[in-house]
Amino acid sequence: PDDEWKERLREAEEKNNWKLFEELARKAGVSEEKIEEWKRRWS
């Protein structure tokens, strides 16, 4: 299951679909801290 969400995150990233990325990350149990960090790195 871990690989599956990583794959989906990669797809979201490729499409630059931040909303989807964020949603998937939350569902995968990624901390808000980590998500914010990704946001900063991404923008």
Rank of each mutant, 00 (worst) to 15 (best):
6 K>V: 13
17 N>F: 06
16 N>F: 06
23 E>Y: 11
39 K>I: 09
30 V>T: 02
27 K>R: 11
9 L>H: 03
31 S>M: 04
19 K>L: 12
4 E>P: 07
2 D>S: 12
40 R>A: 14
40 R>W: 09
25 A>V: 07
37 E>A: 06
11 E>K: 03
15 K>M: 14
11 E>H: 03
28 A>V: 06
1 P>H: 12
8 R>F: 15
16 N>Y: 06
39 K>A: 05
42 W>I: 04
1 P>Q: 12
33 E>Q: 09
35 I>V: 02
28 A>T: 02
30 V>S: 01
2 D>W: 14
27 K>P: 00
9 L>Y: 09
1 P>I: 15
30 V>I: 14
24 L>I: 14
34 K>W: 14
12 A>F: 10
22 E>Q: 04
2 D>N: 09
28 A>N: 08
32 E>Y: 04
11 E>M: 03
27 K>M: 11
22 E>I: 09
9 L>E: 03
9 L>A: 09
7 E>F: 04
33 E>R: 05
16 N>S: 07
12 A>D: 02
14 E>T: 07
39 K>Y: 10
40 R>Q: 13
42 W>Y: 10
36 E>G: 05
33 E>V: 08
18 W>F: 05
20 L>A: 11
29 G>R: 00
4 E>Q: 08
43 S>I: 13
20 L>Y: 08
40 R>I: 11
14 E>F: 13
6 K>G: 13
23 E>K: 04
18 W>T: 01
43 S>Q: 15
1 P>N: 12
43 S>M: 13
36 E>M: 12
32 E>N: 08
22 E>V: 09
34 K>N: 06
27 K>A: 15
24 L>D: 04
5 W>N: 03
27 K>S: 12
29 G>E: 01
42 W>K: 04
4 E>T: 08
36 E>N: 09
33 E>L: 07
2 D>R: 08
15 K>V: 09
7 E>V: 07
24 L>G: 02
40 R>D: 12
6 K>I: 15
35 I>R: 00
40 R>F: 07
12 A>K: 02
35 I>W: 03
9 L>W: 11
28 A>S: 06
27 K>L: 13
10 R>F: 08
43 S>D: 13
22 E>Y: 13
13 E>D: 05
25 A>F: 04
6 K>S: 13
17 N>A: 05
27 K>I: 12
32 E>R: 06
42 W>S: 03
34 K>V: 14
39 K>V: 05
8 R>P: 09
1 P>R: 09
15 K>D: 10
10 R>D: 08
1 P>M: 14
7 E>Q: 11
11 E>P: 01
7 E>S: 06
31 S>N: 06
25 A>T: 00
42 W>F: 14
19 K>N: 14
39 K>W: 07
6 K>H: 13
14 E>C: 12
4 E>V: 11
15 K>S: 14
8 R>A: 15
30 V>W: 15
21 F>G: 00
4 E>Y: 15
27 K>E: 13
11 E>W: 05
36 E>R: 10
27 K>C: 07
